[in-house]
């Protein structure tokens, strides 16, 4: 097994959809997409954002552009102007997800 930081194989962008945050993660190449497709599950994302995401996490695939899209429900403190969060629109959450370290088979 070897450890990879997500930020070394992917980039992304995040934003708000009401109280849900959306995080799109895009692999730099096909090999990277194979890794995120296999390892970056909704469960792992939910666990990564423990204490931040208070709802379910949905995962969607866009293989043509090597991307995964995650919807993190109940995450932005109410969304819109209701939220007291400094990052009420979840703009920095893509970077927060890219902090993740994943373990993969070296082969």
């Amino acid at each position: 097994m070897s450890k990879i930081r997500l930020i070394d194989i992917a980039h992304g962008r995040s934003g708000d959809k009401g109280d849900a945050a959306n995080i799109g993660i895009i692999a730099f190449d096909d090999k990277g997409y194979a890794i995120i497709d296999k390892h970056l599950t909704a469960e792992k994302v939910k666990k990564h954002f423990e204490g931040i995401c208070h709802g379910k996490v949905e995962r969607f695939e866009l293989p043509n552009i090597r991307a995964l899209n995650f919807l993190l429900h109940n995450t932005l403190g109410g969304g819109g102007t209701v939220s007291l969060k400094h990052d009420a629109q979840g703009k920095t959450l893509a970077a927060a997800l890219l902090r993740m370290v994943i373990e993969i088979d070296v082969s």
Partner: peptide, 29 residues
């Protein structure tokens, strides 16, 4: 372009507008 495509979307297969339901998973760049 890929980063903008995934910005503020929900289910990419069903991007709903008054004009159509676009399937973002079909897009090629």
């Amino acid at each position: 372009i890929a980063e903008q495509l995934v910005y503020e979307i929900g289910n990419p297969a069903e991007y709903i507008t008054p004009d159509c339901v676009a399937d973002f998973t079909s897009i090629k760049l």
